[in-house]
């Protein structure tokens, strides 16, 4: 099952502050909703355990997350892979940063491939649920980045 999402956040910080925030695995991990545990491995990698409740598929997913900062400082990619409960998820997210001085635009996209029970048993609701997760993650980025900069 292939899914796509996109969205936009206007973050009330400078581009440099936002870049610093999303380059920090710990900060990004804290923005993931339903996070149970996160272990930072290095500057661009962390492992996360998240609670999943989609239709009849309920439990925990173990995910490996890799941040891929682009050299120009205008784009951050993120690869998420893992799964559990007889399911696997491969997600590619990307965020483009546009500098407006005191604020920064964050335009994000996400594409995911779901396999296994989560796609079969929860296919009807997975799109909305996954969109909620990714939307909430970027909304959290906006809120926490702004508050950490205040």
């Amino acid at each position: 099952m292939n899914l796509e999402w996109h969205g936009h956040e206007e973050v009330g910080t400078s581009k440099a502050q936002l870049w610093a925030f999303i380059s920090d695995p710990k900060s990004v991990a804290d923005c993931v909703p339903d996070l149970v545990e996160a272990v930072v491995e290095d500057a661009t990698h962390f492992d996360a355990i998240v609670s999943v409740g989609v239709g009849p598929v309920r439990g925990k997913f173990k995910l490996k997350i890799e941040l891929e900062p682009q050299s120009d400082g205008n784009r951050m990619n993120m690869k998420i892979s893992g799964g559990g409960l007889g399911s696997t998820v491969d997600l590619l997210a990307g965020a483009d940063l546009t500098d407006h001085g005191a604020t920064t635009s964050l335009d994000w996209t996400g594409t995911a491939t779901m396999r296994g029970k989560i796609a079969s048993l929860a296919g009807r609701v997975i799109d909305a649920q996954a969109q909620r997760v990714i939307t909430t993650t970027f909304a959290n980025v906006k809120a926490r980045c702004a508050s950490s900069s205040a």
Partner: peptide
């Protein structure tokens, strides 16, 4: 089935 081979009608809900 979706492109990944997932069976999308595994119960009477679907």
């Amino acid at each position: 089935y979706d492109a990944e081979g997932n069976n999308l009608q595994p119960n009477f809900t679907e």
